[in-house]
Nucleic acid binder design. Sequence first.
DNA 1: GTCTATAAGAGGATAGAC
DNA 2: GTCTATCCTCTTATAGAC
Lengths: 208, 208
Amino acid sequence: MAKVSFREQVLQAREDAIVASVNRLLAEKGFDLMTVDEVVADVGIAKASLYKHFTSKEELAAAAMVRVLERALAELERLRTLPGLSALERLKAVARWTMQVQLAGEMPSLPAQNSSLRAALVAHKVYMDRLLTLSDELGEWIGEAQEKGQLSPSLPPELVLYTLFARACDPVLGLLKAGGQYSDEQIIEMLLGTCFDGLTAASLAAKH
Amino acid sequence: MAKVSFREQVLQAREDAIVASVNRLLAEKGFDLMTVDEVVADVGIAKASLYKHFTSKEELAAAAMVRVLERALAELERLRTLPGLSALERLKAVARWTMQVQLAGEMPSLPAQNSSLRAALVAHKVYMDRLLTLSDELGEWIGEAQEKGQLSPSLPPELVLYTLFARACDPVLGLLKAGGQYSDEQIIEMLLGTCFDGLTAASLAAKH
DNA sequence: GTCTATAAGAGGATAGAC
DNA sequence: GTCTATCCTCTTATAGAC
């Protein structure tokens, strides 16, 4: 049992290395421009070896998405344990976290239109489970924030949810960072301000 | 002269048909998934004929972008002539127009990451001219709205500009439309509300 | 399970006749 | 300028030895 366990640990470590590379390359180039050859070159293994772990490029992307979804779920769990945070503050904290991940180059970006990828994702049980779990948990917070009037109660909850997901890969972050005028913190606080308070209201974060 | 002019009109009409197809396919599938074979099948010409008009797939995309940028510039001109519109109202009207174009399936979507495409676009004189013209004109309105306090003066103008561009291809529109619960008008008014007034403020549009 | 070598196919671009 | 037929590169995926 110990021998097998050790063996599997080595394999697991290799899979983790693969998924970490995929995650980074997906964030850097996106699904269509990322090639399997780049992945294996980055990890330092042969392509046939990779295909023993993952049966297709789509499954690679799914694994990377599962990874980031589980990181998000862990962040939600962490926020839940923090005392004294309102539902709105927790939602803002989640949005801040996703923007931090994106600016760190760790947010895999998948095209919304690639049909082979979409088909593989909706058929991927673990991915769908994590996605739905995350949506449910965020939906709870959204409902709570709306009940208390912290979020506009007249907005459909799914609009708020979609908006949070969309801001996690908002190109505005990358454009502002490319401008080089502002620190990551400033960018994030400004975008949090526009997301929750809009372009018309004064962004509190711009005072930095 | 008349003969040549007529000839060129025919060629121009064919080019317009090509660009219209490209525009639609770019909106539908995006640059990477759109193939030149699909374009020529849609237009009904041979591939070699298309390459007499456009020297590469990238140039096709640039032509489609020029087309939509010129439509946008025309919309700005139209809005300028409307009496009694404040700068903020004009900016909202532009945002509404871009969302209408997107929901109509006429907004070409280019990946921000494709380097060969980006290189071709920044090297494309007409595209860059239209893009900079549009940015300048919108920048005027943004500055005006900020001076009058209609837009938060503490936000960097380029952040507002980038946000307007980003909302023109915001995936939230497509997700809400796929849900089938709301009309195009409702979706647009809700997203205009969240864009300008934020998620926390009550969206006036949700009253429908 | 890992490797080298290669199959299989898609898709961008072009040659050459008309 | 338009067509048919073809080239060529890139990329996914696999065969088969170890």
